[in-house]
Design a protein around this nucleic acid. Structure first.
Lengths: 167, 167
DNA sequence: ACCACGATGTTATAGTGTTTCAAGAAGCAT
DNA sequence: ATGCTTCTTGAAACACTATAACATCGTGGT
């Protein structure tokens, strides 16, 4: 593992304390729902937890299967899609359109600019938010007369951990 | 219309000579197929022309309808998808994954880095290829240990012409 | 002319997402 | 607490997007 892989790497290490990821996300989510006046119902929370359960992007079917495994009955596709729509609306998760799949937002409270690094080996999707990079991009775009809304940047590639594993 | 909208704007003006766009694309396509040893068959060409017929992104259904209007019989979805796959493989068209739709590649011979500017008002999708911008992006990504393949950048927003129209 | 290979036509099937409507639960005012 | 309103849920059907499988046809090479 290279020295670049210290505590501040945006990539989730296979050995990181994932329970903390989830706890943090949940408390931020509660705050966001409180502010927006929306309700984090049982269904929505179940879907949210399922999305958060892994750093890999999950599609609607994956989520339905995951919920069913955790004892939920009657996980209709509709229920999953509705919850996903809600969570996207609240900024709690992101849709990776090149995969038709979803991942949890790393920093729902603060992050504005998103760039998704998709490891084609292990499947992990990193929500890399570097304002500088995206602002650079939008600056160029604005300069040629286009008025951009939030850009969608999805980059397939190989993450540091999979490079080290020499897969 | 601001002065920025001169001859070198990447945005296709509503008044531009579209026949020239198409002619140029066709001759580049012929060259590319010659080099790759693949055949530009009647079906493929028909689909290609349909994609090129507009600067708006078209999905498979749009294309099928367009072909049917132009006298083609038996435009099954299969035939459309197969042609689209071929054209994407040859780099003649691009898939806009956030729209599930396709547009013609502006410079199939030369362009490597693509950034798609999607006007949410008029529906035109511009294939903006600015190596500098994308290289800037990949440089940052490489710096944090990720080994990127070609990034997918899709930016919704409002194009200069629609801004002028004050829609 | 014959063969081999790729392209096409056709049908079936899987995957992805939306619409619709009825029923249920939560919040709010009286 | 009651009733009203609104949002959420459940369920079925539908529409869209994409792929698989296989027989047939055409083209190009020998």
């Amino acid at each position: 593992m290279g020295s670049m892989m210290g505590a501040h790497s945006p990539f989730p290490s296979p050995y990181h304390d994932h329970a903390r990821c989830v706890d943090r996300a949940l408390s931020e989510a509660a705050e966001i729902c409180f502010q927006s006046g929306e309700r984090m119902t049982a269904n929505r929370k179940a879907v949210y937890l399922q999305v958060l359960s892994s750093h890999k992007a999950q599609n609607a079917a994956d989520i339905a299967v995951g919920l069913a495994r955790n004892g939920k009955r009657s996980v209709s596709p509709m229920m999953v899609y509705r919850a996903l729509d809600f969570l996207v609306e609240q900024g709690l998760i992101h849709k990776i359109s090149s995969l038709n799949a979803y991942i949890g937002c790393a920093e729902p409270m603060t992050a504005r600019a998103h760039c998704f690094l998709i490891c084609t080996v292990c499947g992990v999707v990193t929500d890399y938010h570097d304002e500088a990079v995206v602002q650079q991009l939008t600056k160029h775009i604005r300069a040629i007369g286009f008025k951009p809304k939030s850009p969608v940047v999805e980059v397939p590639g190989i993450c540091p951990f999979c490079q080290d594993s020499e897969c």
